[in-house]
């Protein structure tokens, strides 16, 4: 696989791309405040989603029914906040007609909040299956594998959200460039689960749930990559040009 390193934004024309527009205040202060609030709300949503994913993953390994229930019930707050962000962004577009970096920031907030809301749904899905698994026999080695994969996915999610909060392009691109780690983990876990199911058909039910969890985690990893791409667009105005390493790998397989 080709080595994907990101060398930072390319200089364009005679002047450097300026990425720190957020720091520069608006002549109309209320407008600047609204933009800052939008970013703050997305950051808050990110924090909520991050803890939902963390709780969902620990509820699996710890067979913690109460925690899993809390995750399932908590999802509605994420949906509410996502709708609130959407409402604010639409209002801002209608009343302020943002352009350039302000427009990108508004559109990015919309897209990020949607991606985060779906990530929240994945966490809820994991928590639901954790409830089912808690009723059966413990499958410790397997749930530990899920936990390890969960930690990896969570660190990607945390990094990309930090990158958003601090407008750190390099950090976002670092997440973007390393999305194959999660996929490798998923493939290994998939093989591990198959081995179990073939060895003892009584584990099929539990393993099927674990397989869906692994799939959910893998998709959360994809969302983290997606978030990194949106942050790249917000900060530079450009799409991430190079293809994703994962897609190259898929093409090679098919």
């Amino acid at each position: 696989m080709s080595d994907t390193t990101y060398s930072g934004p390319q200089p364009l024309g005679q002047t450097q791309v300026q990425t720190d527009f957020r720091a520069n205040p608006h002549t109309v202060r209320a407008y600047g405040d609204e933009l800052n609030q939008l970013t703050a709300e997305v950051t808050r949503l990110g924090g909520m989603v991050e803890s939902q994913v963390a709780d969902a993953v620990s509820s699996v390994a710890r067979r913690d029914v109460a925690l899993a229930r809390a995750v399932i019930e908590g999802d509605v707050r994420i949906d509410d906040l996502q709708r609130e962000i959407e409402r604010r962004a639409i209002r801002l577009i209608a009343l302020r007609q943002p352009v350039a970096a302000d427009l990108r920031r508004t559109v990015a907030a919309l897209k990020l909040s949607l991606s985060l809301e779906r990530t929240g749904d994945m966490a809820k899905g994991i928590a639901k299956r954790a409830l089912v698994l808690a009723e059966g026999e413990p499958m410790l080695p397997l749930t530990r594998s899920i936990e390890r994969m969960g930690k990896l996915v969570l660190s990607r999610l945390k990094d990309v959200l930090d990158a958003y909060t601090t407008a750190n392009l390099d950090q976002a691109m670092n997440v973007w460039a390393h999305d194959d780690d999660v996929d490798e983990h998923y493939d290994a876990l998939f093989r591990e689960l198959l081995t179990y199911m073939m060895g003892d058909p009584r584990t099929i039910n539990g393993c099927a749930h674990l397989l869906f969890m692994a799939k959910n985690l893998e998709r959360i990893g994809d969302h983290a990559t997606n978030l990194a791409e949106i942050i790249h667009y917000e900060l530079t105005g450009e799409d991430v040009l190079a293809d994703r390493p994962r897609r190259l790998a898929q093409d090679a397989q098919s």
């Binding site: 364009l12 024309g13 300026q18 350039a100």
Partner: peptide, 27 residues
């Protein structure tokens, strides 16, 4: 300072002065 297609200027101006002007950050 900068000339480009209107879409470019209003979504992704390259010069900080253009950006500050069109987004209302001047002066």
């Amino acid at each position: 300072i900068e000339a480009a297609s209107t879409e470019e200027i209003f979504t992704n101006p390259r010069d900080a002065r253009t950006h500050d002007f069109i987004t209302g950050r001047f002066g």
